[in-house]
Design a protein around this nucleic acid. Structure first.
Lengths: 116, 116
DNA sequence: ACAATATATCTTGTAATACATAGTATCTTG
DNA sequence: CAAGATACTATGTATTACAAGATATATTGT
């Protein structure tokens, strides 16, 4: 089993959680694309993943955005949560915690027997 | 945001983690299909999800299986981990924990500001 | 003035997994 | 022997993350 296999698996593990994390990241701040990408640095997410996700969340009404032109530099599109988006983020967080506890239980046999 | 939406999202969240959980479940015991499904009851997994997964893991050499005919009842196919499967399960578990800690960090803004 | 670089966003096609649905085979029970 | 329970198999679909590359604007170097 190579490291490469593990990374490929990790990209499956990310599914669903990225949506939740983006909403959570925007729950306290108003941010633009690359800024969000910076917050998610530890996860190793790329632009080609983030931007389509942001567009989807916008179309679904969970995010609002506005262009901000600056005196210098490329214009930026800033995102913030809608009411609906905040409700969804909180529902997801609750469900995620529950699911995680269930996973923890099911992972026990491996983690406890690991020293064998 | 309906409960239905949340469940649809949850099926995305399951991606990747099911593979890990199945391997973990088989780390201490030798089990057949429906028995595994029973262990995963809390997650709400269906046969149409489990059996193709088992077949894939078998083809990849992470699981071994043998038919067991009984005096009464339908024959059962019992699964157990290979050495390779155990190594992969442990690598996944480590990586999963790391990813989870990262997610925890990123979820903080939402969980702490939730009382606003 | 022109090329190169940095910043920022968008687009397109692909791969992988979970799932719904339906189907097959074997045994038990009324 | 029909109906139901148990156990496994097969097929097609939806969703998401991602790689790769395209587009647009401003800055910097020569």
């Amino acid at each position: 089993m190579t490291d490469h296999d593990l990374e490929r698996w990790l990209s499956q593990l990310r599914k669903g959680s990225l949506e939740m994390v983006v909403l959570a990241t925007l729950s306290g701040e108003r941010l633009y694309g690359l800024e969000i990408l910076g917050r998610l640095e530890t996860l190793g997410v790329s632009e080609g993943t983030l931007y389509p996700l942001l567009n989807r969340l916008r179309k679904e009404g969970q995010l609002e955005s506005e262009w901000e032109t600056r005196e210098s530099g490329h214009p930026r599109r800033y995102y913030r949560l809608t009411e609906s988006g905040r409700a969804r983020a909180e529902a997801m967080a609750r469900r995620w915690r529950e699911y995680n506890h269930q996973l923890d239980e099911l992972m026990r046999p491996l983690l406890e027997g690991g020293s064998r």
